[in-house]
Simulated assay, not measured.
Amino acid sequence: MELRQLGAFVTVARRASFTRAAEELHLTQPAVTRQIAALESELGVLLFDRLGKSIQLTGAGETLLGYAEHIQRLTDEAHEALSELAAGRAGRIAIGAASTLATYVLPPLLTRFRQAYPGIELSLRTGLSARVRELVLSGVVDIGLVTSEGEPTRTDGALLSESLGVYETVLAVPPGHTLAGRTRVTVDELAGESLLAMTEGTNLRTYAEHVLADAGVVVSVTMELDSVEAIKRMVEAGLGVSLLPRVAVATEVDAGRLVALTLTGVPLPERHIVVLRRGDKHQSGPLTAFFTLLHQ
């Protein structure tokens, strides 16, 4: 079983076509077909069912695919580790981050990292925290940044998790609001307010619901949005108030367009920024440097 055969097999499985796989691999279709045939002959099983012009994985093919993808990831890690020895600071870091963290926390950090390590290629994938967790577990990204209620456990299955600090949530109100002259507000005082909230399923929406429910406060969600930036604009327009990360409203607060009130009487643990990584994944030199920056 050769690496090039496994590579051809994974590509054919992913593209569901010998022709498209050959194009991606810059080989002829007969060459790809021969590699798959040789692999099937060595293993003694059929990996694909040929159904006219279409193909699909057999049960044996489905089983092999998981192992083949894992072997490819390990091979890539081996090449990366060896190339670091030869090239010093050259390399690549794949980062996954919750959308709000990617927007409001990562930019200054990545600027500092790029200045210190200009030869390192950075790749960033964003999404919900649950999706970022999946990307780390599957090895698609090297490191994940998510939000979590309370401090995480150090080890969670294959994942290592560590808090980087508190991710404070505040009440954002427009300057003309009756609470705007205050610096603090209790959760009870939110009763009757028109709340602008993120869509269901996001960590921010879940946390807001937990805060209100645990305090026994009934608040009407008058508008649901899928963007923190959109929520801020709506609050500025006087359409309601919202529970948002302090870091997300810092620019508007400094400009006098919003007022951020510290929440008191919150019965829940504080939200944290959490870094995730696989415990069995090689930690490259660039990744170690990035971890060091995160902890500064």
Results as ranks from 00 to 15, higher is better:
135 L>I: 04
83 S>F: 15
249 V>Q: 07
117 Y>F: 15
169 T>F: 00
190 L>K: 04
16 A>E: 12
100 T>N: 15
248 A>T: 08
224 E>W: 13
97 A>S: 15
291 F>Y: 12
218 V>C: 07
201 G>R: 11
145 L>F: 15
103 T>W: 05
85 L>F: 14
50 R>L: 03
93 I>F: 08
73 R>N: 11
82 L>W: 15
170 V>K: 10
275 V>M: 14
278 R>G: 06
278 R>D: 07
112 R>K: 13
175 P>M: 11
146 V>R: 06
153 T>V: 12
35 Q>I: 00
232 K>H: 10
256 G>P: 02
276 L>A: 06
197 A>N: 12
106 L>W: 08
259 V>H: 05
268 L>G: 11
190 L>P: 06
293 L>P: 01
64 L>D: 01
91 G>E: 10
103 T>F: 06
260 A>E: 12
22 A>I: 01
220 S>T: 11
195 L>M: 13
291 F>M: 12
26 H>G: 12
181 G>F: 05
8 A>P: 02
55 I>Y: 01
28 T>F: 09
18 F>C: 00
53 K>H: 12
13 A>Q: 00
284 S>C: 07
49 D>P: 02
15 R>G: 01
276 L>S: 04
240 G>W: 03
19 T>M: 04
243 L>T: 03
32 V>P: 00
132 V>E: 06
207 Y>G: 00
144 G>N: 07
291 F>V: 09
6 L>A: 00
162 E>N: 04
266 V>T: 14
282 H>K: 02
2 E>T: 05
35 Q>M: 15
21 A>M: 02
209 E>P: 01
208 A>W: 13
79 H>L: 13
158 A>S: 12
21 A>T: 00
205 R>M: 04
258 L>P: 11
99 S>L: 09
165 G>I: 03
90 A>Q: 13
157 G>K: 12
228 V>Y: 04
278 R>K: 13
195 L>N: 06
78 A>K: 09
266 V>G: 04
170 V>Q: 08
149 E>C: 10
231 I>M: 14
141 V>Y: 11
99 S>P: 04
29 Q>E: 15
73 R>P: 03
79 H>C: 05
